[in-house]
Amino acid sequence: MNQPWRPLSSHAVLVAHDDIDTDQIIPARFLTTTTRSGLGTHLFADWRYDASGAPRREFTLNWPTSTGARILVGGRNFGCGSSREHAPWALADWGFRAVIASSFADIFRSNAHKNGVLTIALDETVLHATQSALRTDPSATITVDLPGQHVFLPDGAGVAFAIDGFSKRCLIDGLDELGVIVAEIPAIHEWEVACGR
């Protein structure tokens, strides 16, 4: 069970690259864990820390302005690559509740929504304008209205975004999909008998 959705208004961390793959979000060497907690420390590990383990000052996540941010702004095709759910676990553990990009990899989006992390796909032009605004003012606020499916960008403009109804309901209610599918077991059993499984 995730927490029900709470209003979201926050400054954002900008990692403006396209095709950010899950190996960058959480490198494979951190996947030997058997739990889902504590991965925020390793979020973007190879971009975030230098060879000695010290934070790289140039990486936005390490900027003092990033403290307390709840929104990450990326580029195109965010979360491509592996199916590791450790990627949204790491993002959520760091504190992120939404990722804004111009498109998302399918598995990442599915995994994110199951962990209370909303994915917001914006038109590429709007995304680039948002990236520019954040470069100018890293403390600018972005507000997400999930029930109304609008995001209010640093310039105050409200932009509609799409999300499938089921993911939206699960996020808003903190609903767990496992419960939904477990309730289908009698129907699944009937189908198995009818279809020779």
Binding site: E85, N111, E177, L178, E184
Partner: peptide, 11 residues
């Protein structure tokens, strides 16, 4: 993802 691994294991 792992959540879905759980869904398939259970159902």
């Amino acid at each position: 993802g792992t959540s879905e691994v759980g869904h398939v294991l259970a159902t």
